[in-house]
Amino acid sequence: MNALFLEPLDVLYLRGNKLFGDAGSHGEALMPPWPSLAAGALRSRLMAAGATLENLSDFRLTLFGLARQSTAHASLEPLWPLPADVVVNSDDLNGATYLRPQPLPAGLSSSYPLAQLPTLCADTPAKPVGGLWLNGAGIAAWLAGQAIVPAHLVRSSQLWQLDSRLGIALDTEKRSAADGMIYTSEAVALQANVGFIAAYAGHEQALQEGDLVRLGGDGRAARLQSGQLILPATDWARIEREGRFRLILTTPGIFAAGWQPEGVPGQLVAASVSRADTISGWDLVTQQPKPAQRIAPSGSVYWYQLSDKLAELEKLQQLADNGLAINDPMRRAEGFNHCRIAPWAQEN
């Protein structure tokens, strides 16, 4: 599919919604950022080219994520945070293990609300390695339920570095530094050929190659480039044959039930959901804060069993194309609730 590559030309200030402004505050960077970062940047650029709020009413971000650009600038390689059903506990990145949904043994009970518990079956206990991402080959392996090997994994340090910046608040009356108002913030310095991919629908006007957009705090510049993104196909025949599937959030999910998606066909039997986060933001149109909402982070994984394969499979394919149900049209336009479907992983 055709996609836009957003190539940062400077460090980026990518912050979440944590309070920031007291003396000694530290502003942490948020990686990956929310998809609203790209939605706002693209809509602002379209409006700068003549679009209006009225003809942007059907705008919808259909793709967002981190990516690497080939040296020939012709193809784009998507990058995913390590899915929540994969655990790597070796520093050499060998022995990646899939979580396996299993019923609790007789005599055990917990507050876990689903029928099966995602279980790590490993030979030796160890602390999981953090800061890992799947490259394009790793994404294809995960979607096929195949083993994840070191060649599929990328450390976050290979994609970006954090650059701590020191700031001093200004006293507007004295026009000098304010007493005791020193703070630090983290800037994200992406490596060469690393940036963000995005695609949108609902607006006919195409952005031009080389257009500049503003990303994150301080409106740091990023250059738009078009590229070909090859996404592995879902093995629908295998899902139909086995009667079960996994669902992964590729952008954060906003659900009425908190962590649990609505409108997904089949029976939810297990889930591995990373720690919840909260999104907010500022609405430039109404000049007021956006409502704070709890989200299930991208990379969260859900296991389902199908009952009526043919009817549910058709609905499932529509969800994969259009995203999960979301009641807030503003957040839908910003690209939340996108997902991919895959068969259950093969036995280790």
Results as ranks from 00 to 15, higher is better:
Leu4Ala: 05
Phe5Tyr: 07
Phe5His: 06
Glu7Phe: 04
Pro8Ala: 08
Leu9Ile: 08
Asp10Tyr: 06
Tyr13Pro: 05
Arg15Gly: 13
Lys18Trp: 12
Leu19Ile: 08
Phe20Asp: 09
Gly24Arg: 04
Gly24Val: 07
His26Thr: 01
Glu28Pro: 15
Ala29Met: 12
Ala39Glu: 02
Gly40Asp: 09
Leu42Glu: 01
Arg45Thr: 07
Ala48His: 13
Asn55Met: 02
Gly65Met: 09
Leu66Cys: 10
Gln69His: 11
Thr71Asn: 11
Ala74Arg: 06
Ala74Cys: 14
Ala74Gly: 12
Ser75Cys: 09
Trp80Pro: 04
Pro81Trp: 14
Val88Arg: 02
Asn89Ser: 12
Asn89Gln: 07
Ser90Leu: 11
Asn94Thr: 14
Ala96Glu: 11
Thr97Arg: 00
Pro103Lys: 12
Ser109Asp: 13
Tyr112Pro: 09
Leu114Phe: 15
Leu117Tyr: 06
Cys121His: 12
Ala122Tyr: 03
Ala122Met: 12
Asp123Ala: 08
Asp123Phe: 04
Lys127Val: 14
Pro128Ala: 15
Gly131His: 02
Leu132Pro: 10
Trp133Arg: 02
Leu134Met: 00
Ile139Phe: 04
Ala141Thr: 13
Ile148Tyr: 07
Ile148Ser: 01
His152Phe: 02
Leu153Gly: 01
Leu153Asp: 05
Val154Ser: 09
Val154Pro: 01
Ser157Met: 07
Gln158Glu: 11
Gln158Pro: 05
Trp160Gly: 05
Trp160His: 13
Trp160Glu: 05
Leu162Ile: 15
Leu166Pro: 00
Leu170Asp: 02
Asp171Ser: 03
Lys174Phe: 00
Lys174His: 03
Ser176Cys: 12
Ser176Glu: 13
Ser176Gly: 06
Ala177Glu: 14
Ala177Met: 14
Gly180Leu: 14
Met181Ser: 10
Met181Val: 01
Leu190Cys: 00
Ala192Tyr: 00
Val194Gly: 05
Gly195Pro: 01
Gly195Thr: 08
Phe196Lys: 07
Gly210Cys: 04
Leu212Arg: 05
Leu215Glu: 15
Gly216Lys: 12
Asp218Tyr: 15
Arg220Phe: 15
Ala222Gln: 08
Ala222Tyr: 03
Gly227Arg: 00
Gln228Asp: 14
Leu231Val: 12
Thr234Gly: 01
Thr234Phe: 04
Asp235Ala: 07
Trp236Asp: 05
Arg238Glu: 15
Arg241His: 15
Gly243Ile: 10
Arg246Asp: 09
Ile248Trp: 05
Thr250Asn: 04
Thr251Asp: 03
Ile254Val: 10
Glu262Phe: 13
Gln267Lys: 04
Ala270Glu: 03
Ser272Thr: 08
Ser274Ala: 10
Trp282Asn: 13
Gln287Val: 06
Lys290Arg: 06
Gln293Pro: 07
Ile295Asn: 06
Ser298Gln: 11
Tyr302Thr: 12
Trp303Asp: 14
Leu306Phe: 14
Ser307Glu: 14
Lys309Thr: 08
Leu310Gln: 15
Glu312Arg: 02
Glu314Gly: 06
Gln317Thr: 12
Leu319Glu: 06
Asp321Gln: 13
Asp321Pro: 02
Asp321Gly: 08
Asn322Lys: 09
Gly323Leu: 09
Ala325Val: 13
Asn327Ile: 06
Arg332Gly: 08
Glu334Pro: 13
Asn337Cys: 09
Arg340Gly: 04
Gln346Arg: 12
Glu347Leu: 10
Asn348Gln: 05
